[in-house]
Design a protein around this nucleic acid. Sequence first.
DNA 1: GATGAATGAGAATTCATTCAT
DNA 2: TATGAATGAATTCTCATTCAT
Lengths: 179, 179, 179, 179
Amino acid sequence: MPRRYDPDRPQRIIDAAIRVVGERGIAGLSHRAVAAEADVPLGSTTYHFASLDDLLVAALRQVNGAWLAGIEEWERGVDASVPLADELTRLVEESLTGDRARAELEYELYLAALRHEAVRPLAAECLDAMVELLARRTGDEGTARALVGLIDGLTLQHLLTGREFDRAEVRDAVVRVLG
Amino acid sequence: MPRRYDPDRPQRIIDAAIRVVGERGIAGLSHRAVAAEADVPLGSTTYHFASLDDLLVAALRQVNGAWLAGIEEWERGVDASVPLADELTRLVEESLTGDRARAELEYELYLAALRHEAVRPLAAECLDAMVELLARRTGDEGTARALVGLIDGLTLQHLLTGREFDRAEVRDAVVRVLG
Amino acid sequence: MPRRYDPDRPQRIIDAAIRVVGERGIAGLSHRAVAAEADVPLGSTTYHFASLDDLLVAALRQVNGAWLAGIEEWERGVDASVPLADELTRLVEESLTGDRARAELEYELYLAALRHEAVRPLAAECLDAMVELLARRTGDEGTARALVGLIDGLTLQHLLTGREFDRAEVRDAVVRVLG
Amino acid sequence: MPRRYDPDRPQRIIDAAIRVVGERGIAGLSHRAVAAEADVPLGSTTYHFASLDDLLVAALRQVNGAWLAGIEEWERGVDASVPLADELTRLVEESLTGDRARAELEYELYLAALRHEAVRPLAAECLDAMVELLARRTGDEGTARALVGLIDGLTLQHLLTGREFDRAEVRDAVVRVLG
DNA sequence: GATGAATGAGAATTCATTCAT
DNA sequence: TATGAATGAATTCTCATTCAT
């Protein structure tokens, strides 16, 4: 087998890792699985990412980045003439009715951080960024934090129970928290 | 070595499994680890629980039961003369300032449910029970669901960021959701 | 492949480990090599000896035992009418002109103990046993220790330089240490 | 990154290799470990030393050289008015009470030589040099060889058993071998 | 000349599960 | 019924060496 010159192999390994986590969860992440998914030799994954933790963090950092970009795009698209509650409800709805695998991936990040020391800063960073962004709209950090909590909690409920998304109910709760 | 008469060995195995999950997370659950923790032969764990999933479900079912019992005890102790928001804030505070390992264990249940088909009903049951219980107080399921979401989300925030518990802030959010 | 009932498999694994160390040195000891040599599955070696250290210690303990038995046999065969120096010289000669692999194995034990925490007690035990045994003949521990040192050092010299065994020279040195 | 002009990089790699062997033993020697310790790129170690054996031999040759220099310095410092036994005892004492890591390193050379074809000449050279040097004092090669054996054997005993250094005992043995 | 990248082999362990006793 | 033994697959990680740049 020829030795391929492959300058963005690290990036391809990260992408493969994200797909693996998306499909099998963080518990299913392994050097082998990633190597197979990226179609690179096993040793290549450990060459570029010395430990599985390194790879996990690199992958989650990228997921985080994409998530933050999505949020910021949402913010830029917010219509000032529409109540914030409507726009937030839309955000939740799009997250839930869109790619379920992606939503699961994002929440798996949160929960993995509970056990994974190395992942906690990533999750915290995500939370903080979301709070800060919402605080710019609400003018009040406490309210922003409550909103993030509410949204996260409701999203988890839906992911776990499979209940249908109820737009009015979510909107109503958001309105109340906004005060 | 005499074959000991040991009628509650299955229970002791479950208890050991809970300790193992509490210490190492669900990813750290293994027949071997449980057998060592319970001080029973390895074969005993597979004899009483044919697969690791069976053992995991049995353990989580027990954790759930204890959690529900705790909630119900909280409900019985609720002072009708005190605003519900105060009692709920106290509930969150006690969960966060008490045994962190226990809180993590409960949220790890959520994580497991995201990926583990077999665990999802347990998580859903827990959520539904909490909603039902709160609905008895709020008189309204939608509000109860929003409350549960808010509480879960805020608890996760605290577990992940390590931020200090801010009683006034939490209480304020609960008050708003209660309407 | 049928699951063989094989009650003395642990012993066979130890024997295989000794052969492996004999042929490739302690650095060449690996689960794989032992499994192949013993003709058992790889997992079998780790089942019976949880870590490679465990296996190494078990193997060296057996080598030690055989060595001690050899020394004790030598002692029982010592002819009281022959000067001790002659009998000791014979002991060294037999060790050097006999199975070179065995002699190397025994000295590798000594030297491995320098780095291997787990092996040190074994080497020390061997040394102490030899000293005690010789002290019974010399009546004096200090002399016994010097004798053991001399014998070990000369043996190493021969193993390392490949110099021919010079009976008179060795005997002469032993005589002097005996005083 | 500029290509630095670094004419004694090979020497720095050797020094790093000696430190690695000193800390982790010969079994712990690897290109990677040396590259990290010397703070040079991995490829640099294989560029200057084509195989790991080459590097090991270069490192041990240097250790040998330092050891021989130490012995020769000892010889030059020998006080003719002091009995040779006293000076030899001092030599052993200094080796044992000084840097234990250094003493271990020197005896690890012996271990390596037992198994490593390429290292044997180095060990033999060391032994021969010491014998020759002592023979200049004793006037007799056989006695010198016995002395070297005694010293090596006693040193090993102390390294392995951790017994306290007993000056009188060692001196007594040396006196006897000197005849 | 010099070096980062690449790779395939092999290292120790862990493990769920099966099966003979 | 209960359990120690057994096994094969999979785990992470390390490594010597080669090679394209």
